[in-house]
Simulated scan of single mutants.
Amino acid sequence: MEGQPTANTGASVLNRLGLDHLIEVLRARGYCVVGPTVEDSAIVLVELESGVQLPSGWGVTTGAGTYRLRRRDDTAVFGHSAGPQSWKRFLHPPRQQQWSLDRDGAFTGPGHNERPYAFVGVRGCDLAAISALRRVLCPDPDSDSATARRFRRLFIVAAHCTEPGEVCFCASMGTGPAAGPGYDLALTERIDDDGHRFVVEVGTESGADVLAGIAHRAAATAEVDDARHAVSTAAGRMGRAMPEVDLRTLLRDARGADVWEDVASRCLTCGNCTMVCPTCFCTTSEDVTDLTGEHAERWLHWSSCFEPDFSYVHGGNVRTSGESRYRQWMSHKLGTWFDQFGSSGCVGCGRCIDWCPVGIDITAEAARLIEIMPAYRPKDDREEP
């Protein structure tokens, strides 16, 4: 181990090379290591072969319908907010083959030899999203399904957020900026006159075992306090906030409000918000054959409640208007998700705001509902009778 322990804080410190070594160790243990890198003018998630691929010195500027890379004045690798992709695409792939069948009866099921994933740089909002997906997709976590195996074998290196973006609102959703339970290791990146380092917290025995194979030192009390202060102050620098009201009741009572027609006049029903959302999980299946008719396959792929045929039942579609589809999405995400899964379906990452072509802001729409529902306004803002 490099250096000498300076305090028994329970935390450790890795330098920048130590982060690269962490990726090497995880790969050596058979993990497919996934983390952020720069591609196509965005920070995206890819399989990492080394720490060189991390987005050193890159940040992002975000807004409603806006996402731009920008150069930082330091070499931070986690100095950016959520990009267009979430970790969902690895745990719940956009397209999965369910089976294939030949005319002679040869049947092939889904493959079972997937490498386990190790995610590096998971923010608090995305860690909460992974937890939500686990509840939704793995009602029996011990089953032998491909999805359950992915979750069971997952190794998570979280990154506590110190620089939220302009559309982030995880603090108001209770999911960040500090990563909650569920990580194996958690990093807080710090760069100052003392160098580039990561304060490391261990969340599981697996995390402790991996850390033991990497050069590190014990963190000083001052380093731990500095890391915690950086994360706690980030909560006050969120670019957005969800209103502090009972959203389930608000959305139920506002079902017939005129505001939905106004949103529909702007919404393109393109489904971008559901595609970038880290918790949207809806799918549909598709059967295909080759031109000879000798081979058939069934594929499962992502779907969206904004698709006209999503609500099709015998006799027609239940939700034919853009107004009803947007209301369904927002009402489920912020309301009825509680009834189904015990939590909100929104983690405050802000991706749906970033990647909406017309800049519809879910926090602004929730605030508008409060404006037209006097009972939900703060007492000081209500009109006198």
Rank of each mutant, 00 (worst) to 15 (best):
S41A: 13
W99I: 10
V13F: 05
A367P: 02
R29A: 07
T249F: 02
E201A: 12
V199Q: 09
G10M: 05
A129W: 08
G18W: 08
V136E: 14
R135K: 15
G124M: 08
W329T: 01
L369G: 06
V347A: 05
R152W: 14
A364M: 01
A178W: 08
H332D: 02
D381L: 14
D73F: 12
N8I: 00
S321N: 05
W355T: 01
D262R: 15
R377T: 04
S86P: 07
R153M: 07
R68K: 14
A218G: 14
G30D: 09
A218N: 04
R217W: 12
C346G: 05
D226Q: 10
V38G: 05
F341E: 14
R240G: 02
Y376V: 14
R16C: 03
V157D: 07
V136K: 11
A208G: 13
R152T: 13
D225E: 15
I360S: 02
D290S: 01
R134N: 13
A132T: 14
S311E: 03
V313L: 13
L69I: 01
R217H: 13
V210C: 05
G111E: 12
I130R: 07
L127H: 05
R237A: 13
A367W: 00
V38K: 04
E189Q: 06
E383L: 12
M173E: 15
M173G: 08
Q85H: 01
D287Q: 09
D193P: 01
G180D: 06
R248M: 08
P5W: 01
A220H: 07
T66N: 03
S321F: 01
G359F: 08
M238S: 08
A219V: 11
R217Q: 15
A171N: 12
K88T: 08
R72P: 09
G57T: 01
T279L: 03
S41E: 15
Y312N: 10
K379C: 06
M275S: 03
M1C: 08
V122H: 04
D225V: 13
